[in-house]
Design a protein around this nucleic acid. Structure first.
Lengths: 267, 267
DNA sequence: GAGCTTATACTCGTCTGCGAATACTCGTAG
DNA sequence: CTACGAGTATTCGCAGACGAGTATAAGCTC
């Protein structure tokens, strides 16, 4: 993957603004704000001059002139170069064609949720749910105002956000309910550990190499289980340490699960 | 929102590793790698020593000892402090309770997709679709290997990822098809502009304050249309400039749309 | 046992991000 | 006419991120 000379998303916004006409930095900010670009990308205005400077350094924009308007400070006007135009198109193409690989912060949080107790997690998820629903309502409301004025074509980002929002809401609700009702296997043990500090004796077996639950094609697909680890690794694996099991480190194989409860997918 | 003293997600991973037992940095890396934490958060190992140093500076971890093991370089062992434990719990709680507000890069890309042409965008979306499906297949495969060994409880992050992945796939497919078949209003005009450079004369009206399409409560809800702009803004608004319209800046009101085609949601 | 690769364990320097501060000007309420 | 707050336009400084580099040890191969 070729690394972008200027990686800050604000740079992309700047390039896209300059397509229209040359501007000075502050004007770019005004235009982008007016266009509601802040809803589509996280923009830190403090980076504006740095980013524009970097774009210039790499030849994506060029100075047109420096004008002094009355007693105001001098303003430097920038225009898009051919290289800048190309960079913009290439960048957009990349954003559209390549999925974001980085996991979300929420996913990170889920992966270590065992640092807390199940009931606390359920409460936190309820808070999240409230916030998500509020946001959803906001977005829908904004739509109701927009759709009369703007063609669908320019609203796709918003549709996308809505779809993901709804998917997340549904899933979070399912998980919360399963935690609250202990419908998810292991929750009872987890709660017990949290309340008493005792590890259930059968936990190790429960977590470790799951005997006959589904001996099927498992075994060594993907990363091999750490239990009978390779001698090359001198740190002890999760398997040998029940504490590690309850502290909730996902398995080396973490990633997916066949859905059987209703947070899951496909019947 | 209180700002985190150490904001790097790698710091969270480090804290979570130290819950188990004191370690030196390299060992943390080994453990985290082994646990597959890389699948749950974007980790740059180059930041490890900086981050551990920062955690120490802020009292979240403390030095236990420096040992020299044979001729190897000296290693500093760190342990979690009470403050560190508290920080970990607070951090996880925040991650679970507060939705990620930042839009994804894909959303940013969508919001300026008009920098390209509709057919090109459709191609790029097809590429994305392929990549997404590949990733989905990978994740499902990893599951098949995991589920025999690990309780559901430790796989929720993976389930979440799957759900979002499927939602995105479905939506992207819908959009691509609508672009390819011009089912989405405005695509024909967009393509025409791209091919000939001509702006359809009715575009301005089409984009601008949509007369009677839905006069309802619209009008001044949300940000008012820039056309008859306030005198406070001296830069001209989208409305007065057809070029701006086709260059695809979303409206000031961008965000959502009532779904009517199948990329949409709810019946 | 020479020479290769892989793992261990860090360090460094550069580049960037961005919060906060600065400074000037204009409209307007008193 | 004058003080004030809102808008205009930019600079600065420093913390932090992280790619790349370094150096040694332990296996492994022929």
């Amino acid at each position: 993957m070729k690394r972008r000379k200027v990686g800050n998303m604000l740079g992309l916004a700047v390039l896209s603004a300059l397509v229209e006409r040359p501007m000075h930095p502050y004007e770019m900010a005004s235009v982008l704000r007016e266009r509601g670009k802040e809803a589509d990308m996280k923009i830190k205005w403090g980076s504006l001059y740095t980013v524009v400077g970097n774009l210039e350094k790499h030849g994506f924009v060029a100075t047109v002139e420096s004008v002094r308007d009355g007693a105001r400070p001098e303003r430097t006007i920038y225009r898009l170069t051919d290289a800048g135009r190309a960079e913009l198109e290439d960048w957009v193409a990349e954003l559209l064609a390549e999925p974001d690989l980085e996991p979300t912060k929420f996913q990170a949080g889920l992966s270590i949720m065992a640092s807390l107790g199940p009931d606390e997690v359920a409460d936190l998820l309820t808070k999240r749910l409230t916030a998500l629903e509020k946001r959803l309502a906001e977005r829908v409301a904004v739509l109701e105002a927009s759709r009369a004025e703007v063609p669908r074509l320019f609203l796709v980002e918003g549709e996308y956000e809505l779809v993901l929002l709804r998917a997340e809401i549904e899933w979070v609700r399912g998980l919360r309910d399963d935690l609250a009702t202990s419908a998810l296997p292991g929750v009872a043990e987890w709660r017990h550990y949290r309340e008493t500090g005792e590890l259930p004796e059968d936990l190790t077996a429960f977590t470790e190499g799951g005997q006959e639950w589904k001996a099927g094609p498992g075994g060594s697909a993907g990363t091999p289980p750490p239990g009978p680890g390779k001698p090359s690794n001198r740190f002890r694996g999760r398997g040998s340490d029940p504490q590690a099991a309850i502290t909730g480190y996902g398995p080396a194989l973490a990633g997916a699960v066949r859905p059987t409860h209703r947070t899951g997918v496909q019947p």
